[in-house]
Each structure stands twice: as C-alpha cells, then as structure tokens.
Amino acid sequence: MTHLPFIIASYGLFIALALYLSAGAALRLRTARLKLLSLEPAKPSSPGKKSVS
C-alpha cells in the first residue's frame, strides 16, 4: 500500500490550517488598525511619543 495519499493529506491539512490562521489573524489586525485610526483623533506628534499601532 502506498503511503503517498496519507503524506499529501497531512501536508495539505497543515498548509490549509496555517493559511487559515495566519490570513485570519492578518485580516483581523488590519481591520482593527484601520477602524482605530478612523476613530482616534490625530494627535500632534511630539518628540519621544510614538504611534501605538
């Protein structure tokens, strides 16, 4: 019995899950950052203060 289908299924599952989790996290981070930027009033930049995002 060839083991190839089991190996392909394992690597395929890993790639699918990695893409799902990383794309989901990146999308969520981007949405939150854009919404926060639109809500927070622009502060004048002062020396020593950095952006929060």
Binding site: A25, A26, L29, A32, L36
Partner: peptide, 17 residues
C-alpha cells in the same frame, strides 16, 4: 507565537475601539 501575537494585538485594538 506570531499568530497569537497578531490576534492579541488585534484584540487589544478592538478593546480600545
């Protein structure tokens, strides 16, 4: 760690929102 950190950063921003 990278995925958890990205989700946590988003979660902190969502709390702020």
């Amino acid at each position: 760690a990278a995925i958890v950190l990205a989700r946590l950063r988003a979660s902190v921003m969502e709390s702020r929102i």
